[in-house]
Simulated assay, not measured.
Amino acid sequence: MNKSKTIYINGRFLTQPVTGVQRFAIELCEELFKLDLKVKLVSPKNVLHKDLSKKFKNQTIGSLEGHLWEQIELPRFLKQKGNPILLNLCNTSPLYYSESVITLHDLAFIKHPEWFSFAFRTFYNFLIPKTIKKAKMILTVSNTVKSDIQKYFNQNGDNIHVVYNGLPLIFQNAKKNRKKDDKRPYFLAMGGKNPRKNLNNVLAAMQLLENSDFDLRVIGRSEANFNTVKIDAKEYRFNLIFHTDIDDEKLQELYKGAKALIYPSFYEGFGIPPLEALNANCPIILSDIEVFRELYHDVATFADPNSIEDIKSGIEKIINNEYEALSIEKMNELNEKYSYWNAAKIVSDRVEALI
């Protein structure tokens, strides 16, 4: 391998609020920069995460922002650098650049177009099939999504590599003790008003509980790209509390204090919150879908996401302690399997082979 050739990373994620996709990019970069790999991060100038930009020695280029920067200024810059490999970690990539490695986190825009704004799904349906066809290599975060990519885009699986998400170090290093809270006991849900997170069915299931002594705390924000669900907290006989824009420390505290994480998503590419919750000794109630069976088959309580009664039954199992607590050995096994360090080594080996 020629170590003198630099691998460039599309750093547009530094200009975006952190969701699961951006978290993957940040944590993977943390590990990639520790390896014997010559990498360089480049981004637009409108950086939100200035501390990370400085840490990664990010180079800001051009004057445009968003997709315009990605489609116009980024490939122009790379062609001036001799057409190096470009590692794209957050779904999109330059259409007119042939040396791209792309990362697809899920195919929700195809499988559930009703969740997205017209502009978003139109753009993704135009862009993604073309970038997949031109990509030097495709990365994705689960075998479930790999199978979907093969099915919907008629791709040979040999060029698609699975790199699992992992647990950020800040969560791994946190104390695992459960938090004792003098306030009302609560369950935790994720995703705010994002329709894929199935919050309406969670609310309906909570409403059916005979025991109404539990609050529901919901983490997340409304996203402009999604068609959001409407919620009226006054309709429910339990306290409904929303948490938006919280930091990792606060998130860990919420996991530690919760009776369980209720996460009955209709569709996911991976699903990081269950891994975070387990690490805080917080039980998890998950939708009985293929990807969660792949990742969490023996550590979760499963429920049909379309059945309010089934979700209610899952909640009642937690209330009645009808679940198996996660052992330290099992958590260590999960942390080893779902590791950004492992992901970085896979990416490094695969990308180096292209040079």
Rank of each mutant, 00 (worst) to 15 (best):
K197T: 00
F77T: 01
L326S: 04
N88Q: 01
F171N: 10
S307Q: 07
I308R: 10
V21T: 10
T140E: 01
E336N: 13
A280V: 08
K79T: 12
P84G: 06
S287Y: 09
S222Q: 14
N321E: 12
L87R: 03
L86F: 05
L104D: 01
V351D: 04
P273G: 03
V202R: 01
G66D: 07
E329F: 04
I319A: 02
N143T: 03
P274D: 07
N306I: 10
L208G: 11
S265K: 06
E99Y: 14
T131F: 02
K180L: 13
I319K: 00
N239Y: 14
D288S: 06
I85V: 05
F266M: 07
K259R: 13
Q150I: 11
I231A: 02
I246Q: 07
I72M: 11
L37R: 08
D247Y: 11
L37K: 08
A343L: 02
E322Q: 14
Y263N: 06
P195K: 00
Y338E: 02
Y323E: 08
E99R: 14
N332S: 10
E253T: 14
S313D: 14
K345L: 12
L208N: 13
K34R: 15
Q155N: 04
G220Y: 13
L326Q: 00
K40G: 11
I160P: 00
I138E: 00
L240I: 06
E235S: 11
S142D: 00
G192K: 05
E290F: 11
D51H: 14
R350H: 05
L251D: 09
A344P: 01
P264D: 04
L104S: 04
A204R: 14
D248A: 09
A25K: 09
D148C: 02
L41C: 15
F266E: 03
K197Q: 06
E210C: 12
F270Q: 07
R121C: 08
Q71T: 01
A260S: 04
E322M: 08
E223M: 15
G220C: 09
T122E: 08
K40D: 13
A25M: 09
T92L: 13
W341G: 15
Q59W: 09
K38C: 10
E30M: 12
L169A: 15
L216D: 03
F109Y: 05
N46K: 14
K34T: 12
N198W: 03
I128C: 09
I241W: 00
I311K: 04
L74T: 05
F109S: 00
T19S: 14
S4C: 13
K5E: 15
T6Q: 14
N281A: 05
W115E: 03
V218N: 08
K136F: 03
